[in-house]
Design a protein around this nucleic acid. Sequence first.
DNA 1: ACCTATTCGGGAACGGTGTTCGCGAACACT
DNA 2: AGTGTTCGCGAACACCGTTCCCGAATAGGT
Lengths: 219, 219
Amino acid sequence: MEAVPVWLRERRAGVGRPAERSRAEVTAAAIALADREGLAAVSMRRVAAELGTGAASLYRYVDSRDDLLDLMIDEVAAGYQLPPPGGPWLPGLLEVCRQARELMLRHGWLPELVLTRSALGPHGTDLLEHVLAVLAEHPASVGRKLETYAVMTTLTAALALNELNGGSAARQRQGAYLAHVIAAGRHAHLTAALSRGSLVPAPSFEDTVSRVLAGLLGE
Amino acid sequence: MEAVPVWLRERRAGVGRPAERSRAEVTAAAIALADREGLAAVSMRRVAAELGTGAASLYRYVDSRDDLLDLMIDEVAAGYQLPPPGGPWLPGLLEVCRQARELMLRHGWLPELVLTRSALGPHGTDLLEHVLAVLAEHPASVGRKLETYAVMTTLTAALALNELNGGSAARQRQGAYLAHVIAAGRHAHLTAALSRGSLVPAPSFEDTVSRVLAGLLGE
DNA sequence: ACCTATTCGGGAACGGTGTTCGCGAACACT
DNA sequence: AGTGTTCGCGAACACCGTTCCCGAATAGGT
């Protein structure tokens, strides 16, 4: 295991047999597969099959499956289309979160990955730079600003995950157990909360994020 | 796959050969193993070995490995020692987060699990009931209160995960790449942020959580 | 034109994984 | 004693990530 992260392992000069594929191609295949069949389907063998090669060949481009997952995250982060920083910070950060949510809903496997691992690739650092630029005039400490970035990411991923699981079988299971809990009699507040209207309306994404950011950096 | 969650599958009456173990015993073995060797070590075979049985036997107590993970989460949630609800809501919620952080630092595998899956077991519903009780007088909507519970959980898990990974090899890797990014010249704000003092002090856990909760439910 | 250094492709294998099948053993009840 | 039912679990299946190793392919030097 090298002390050097994936992003620094560079292709060497024109010596020896040339590679038939590129790291970007492998990453794209993995993303396509994850979009189509979910993260669990992204195995080295399946990704290789997607490219029409053998599984072992992938290790010419990637040190491990974990590296590939990091590459997938960063590649999707290339999709941000950020306006030049300027103006008040809250709308600036909100726009970042809006786009993050969009990307996560488009790639349903992203939230889980973002919540679990915290690798910062080239596009990730660009995003962090943008957030720091938006907050350039803000008097908060550097530590708080970095933390704000982390909270934005985590919160958006968690909320997106909730949206994605909204109508799934897991939700039904949850409902079945909650009905049982309510029937059992204890948990008065829970019962009261879930009884008026079988479906509780969730606050809007933007409202929630605004409130959290205002609390974190506010006044 | 049943539509009924794990928590409702009950032991049947005294018919046939009696079981040699209990679901609680299996759960405890899995938790002990995870505490000792991490979540990756929790395989059906290893848990079974912990109990001195065969792997296939575990399926008498649990439908799948995922079920076992849900049981582990809920079992740890039995460790909360919550004061009777009453008084202002912010300290009440803060105390919940404090204890959650404590449990997560004691069981380093918990944050990842909590962030990824959202199953509510018996102890989980007790906790949710407590949070709703603390917020009983608060004028916010039910949807917002439920969302607050989710944000508390997610945020605490994410911050605990950061604490746990603080001194790991992954962090070193991250630092190596950031040094490279800084050396590359672009990313002025990032460079400025990380240059004064190689180690940026992180805001305190309680301060962060207080601010987020105040923003979410504030004024 | 040949040789050599170097890289790539990938079949085969290793040691794992979750899960299912089916059968003998063990018990409760009649 | 017989019967119905559950339990324990070895064996097997279909995967998984990763490593080994060797033949093929290329570039540069001569």
